[in-house]
Design a protein around this nucleic acid. Structure first.
Lengths: 210, 210
DNA sequence: CTCCAACGTGAGGTCATCCTCACATATCGT
DNA sequence: ACGATATGTGAGGATGACCTCACGTTGGAG
């Protein structure tokens, strides 16, 4: 399932060995990005960590940016899959439970894909289009969920509400850094509470048309 | 009021011209950081932007990190001043008004000190102690405000609640990026609403002891 | 006026990083 | 077996960034 760097410049792997190489390279890059940040991570270290020569790395990923794009593509795919499940489960969901699932989904995702956050926050160091489109699509997903859960919501308030929920999810991810674990847990509980309160208010704002 | 780089290595300005230079250098650095990011900003460009030679820059700030520290110190001072005012005004403040003041304070601060956010989010590229202590102190300020506004709150829930409010403030700052202006305004209104709801819940959770 | 420390200057040293390239090796269809 | 193509390799070029240093300039104290 590892994405092939077909999209940008680099030659795509075709033999089996190539795919394994690409997977190892991607994993090594992910690790380096997490440990040192996108800018500080060096191509030579990434190659060494994957047990490959620097030339092999450049054969599949002609630039560091291409590496980031490939990683982002993989992560985005996994995220979209989770959001699809969330949308599917939304209809028969109490407000409290929806809030719990939202924060749990995002908090868990960060644990399993640590480099994703690193890359989307890499700001000025790589083309802003990448994070842009992902954030936009996430916002669309949240709009869907809100439309299902708060059907009486005025059309003009749907997107702003989705933006706020998106920021709350970002907060859930950020809280994942906190230590000790007990404090982190308590904070995430409070965040879930705040989200549930807000969702409830949205739902009850206009119960239903006549 | 511009901070002198006395704290770290660099020679401190003593004549009047020196202070003007340092101020210009700091302003130039702030601009470069905002436009290109901390890592991408170069010392040569910062010096050029301030109308100074590269040597003059290194006379006052022996390293790029020292520049960031000096900027952070200035910004932190200004932020703490605002927080002091906020704490002072907290006692006689309705919940709705407190929420409004909080988001307005942070949103305004970002407009006036754009480089602050850039630096605190520079993550792995500069010592983490800088952002750490500032975030910690901000959290303490929020604890004070919450203790005033929700005196019935259990001691164990005070810090987690402050952490959540802190994340909401971060969200208010992030929303400042959104365009067009109408959408941003609507989102910030919604965020204020969510914050007010949460604060109200905290306040009413345990009205008062017997 | 004189002098000295603060301040100003910019060419260049040093270093790390990104990326290239010419050639070696592995893998597969025929 | 044998080419053809994919894959592997690492020394080195090119670039640019950070920072130094030896010397010139300014401005205020005695």
């Amino acid at each position: 399932m590892a994405s092939r760097p077909t999209s940008q410049g680099g030659r795509a792997p075709q033999r089996r060995r190539g795919h394994e190489r690409v997977a190892a390279l991607l994993a090594a890059a992910s690790g380096c990005f997490v440990e040192k940040g996108y800018d500080a991570a060096t191509m030579t270290e990434i190659a060494a960590r994957a047990g490959a020569a620097i030339g092999s790395l450049y054969q599949f990923f002609p630039t560091k940016e291409a590496l980031a794009e490939a990683l982002m593509a993989d992560h985005a795919e996994a995220l979209y899959a989770r959001m699809d499940r969330l949308v599917a489960q939304a209809p028969g969901c109490a407000t409290e439970e929806l809030a719990a699932r939202l924060v749990r989904t995002f908090a868990d995702y960060r644990r399993q894909h640590p480099s994703f956050v690193i890359l989307v926050e890499a700001g000025g160091s790589l083309p802003p289009m990448l994070g842009r489109t992902i954030r936009q699509r996430m916002r669309d997903y949240l709009c869907q969920i809100l439309a299902i859960h708060a059907p009486g919501l005025a059309a003009g308030e749907l997107r702003p509400a989705a933006m706020v929920v998106q920021q709350l999810m970002k907060a859930a991810v950020a809280l994942q850094n906190e230590r000790p674990a007990a404090l982190r847990q308590a904070a995430q509980d409070q965040l879930r509470r705040a989200l549930a309160l807000y969702l409830k208010e949205l739902t009850e704002s206009r119960p239903a048309p006549t």
